[in-house]
Design a protein around this nucleic acid. Structure first.
Lengths: 225, 225
DNA sequence: AGCAAAATGTCGGCTAATTTACACTTCGCT
DNA sequence: AGCGAAGTGTAAATTAGCCGACATTTTGCT
């Protein structure tokens, strides 16, 4: 990969924005680049050397298999997000992999050990990274407490609001979301059965809160959710 | 407070164990010390300057109030744990406070800004701290996914196992836990109603899995849980 | 175009667990 | 010692949402 390309990729993430061109260039830590298409599975825990990944394009879901063999969606990663062993500790206990949701994705990665060295040499970056991990933790806490204390309907509403906020195209009070999730995915994210999710979505459509199809979701009036 | 005392307090947490005596002494970041007794409430978010706290003695619970005014237990902090704005970002959105569970507690604290400076000057510490926050995140993720996918009984069993492991006095296969929680607390932690928790605990007692009273819980055979 | 697989829609029975309601016990305090 | 508050025990009614079962629609593939 060309030096300039590396620079551009890293520079694009807000975490690295504070580093100068020469700093990034000097570090040269990007060691992998990968393209993949819809439905493909990318293993990243265990396997070879521990890495941190940056999703450059598209969407993926992080899925884990529990003891009973059920799939659970752990996270949805969007363009620009980091994923992988963000805690800088490898654990082989959890069996996780990523599955491509959008038509195609571009992923770049670097070695965890290289990243650690970088953090050691750039205390400011280390501090930013700590805050970044902390923010991620806060988000998780927040979404989980929703899962626990609210009913399925409220959870779906909250999920749609969050999704609309992070990715929706706003047009007045109406928001259009590119829908790369199946109803089953949505059900898993809000921790309910597929049937319940279907029922709730149809109910919302009947109440003219949104219009749903496999390509996009249009929320008529985001303020009414 | 005497310099030596400060040193001792910090030194006691594994995070600071790598720092030399002179380093800690030089930094002198402990700026607060506090004792409190059972039932007392300690506010730590919002209010004055942001701080990080270290619980030296006793047990506290972190409680938050949601929109509807219900109390939720966010975390149980044990002797030696850090708490407060561990993410190094203050947010005033969440209304959280700590409540003392044990007879009395000792808490020391330092300013978040001082701690940030310290991290900037000690990259190794910064890295350790990041991993520490990451570990905390992993624990939270794990306990939440238990909450979501398992039924109340399994959750209670898991909670008791965890509690026994972190604090229990082992004696062969039997483990004795000092019980500073009410059944209501336990119910909140495992996210069920007080009645269900009571019922399950009595059921376990009837099945001779444990003996419960307000002072202690004795698990007859930890391997059978 | 045609077929299999994946995704969506719909229905009732079933069950864990919440809710409501109340009695009893223990604790902390003056 | 005695009282109120907090904690614990128990039971019945109610319900959200899971599960199984199936029909229909849409997609991707050759």
């Amino acid at each position: 990969m060309y030096e300039d390309l590396k620079y551009w990729y890293l520079r694009d993430h807000k975490l690295f924005r504070t580093l100068s061109y020469s700093q990034i260039k000097q570090l040269c830590i990007i060691t992998g680049f990968k393209k993949a298409s819809k439905g493909e599975i990318i293993y990243f825990s265990s396997s070879d050397v521990p890495r941190i990944f940056l999703l450059k394009k598209g969407n993926i879901k992080i899925v884990s298999i529990d003891d009973d063999g059920n799939e659970t969606i752990k996270d949805i990663i969007q363009k620009g997000d980091l994923f992988g062993e963000l805690t800088l500790e490898t654990d082989n206990k959890v069996e996780e992999y990523a599955k491509v949701l959008s038509d195609d994705v571009a992923i770049c990665s670097f070695l965890m050990s290289d990243f650690e060295d970088l953090l050691l040499r750039n205390p400011t970056l280390a501090l930013s990274y700590t805050k970044f991990v902390g923010l991620k933790m806060k988000r998780i806490k927040n979404s989980y407490s929703n899962l626990i204390s609210k009913d399925a309907k409220t959870r779906l509403y909250q999920f749609l609001k969050d999704w609309a906020e992070s990715e929706g195209a706003v047009n007045g009070n109406s928001v259009t979301i590119e829908n790369y999730l199946t109803q089953n995915d949505i059900a898993q994210i809000i921790c309910t059965s597929r049937q319940t999710a279907t029922q709730l979505l149809n109910e919302m459509e009947a109440n003219q809160l949104l219009s749903y199809n496999r390509k996009e979701i249009i929320i008529q009036d985001i303020t009414k959710l």
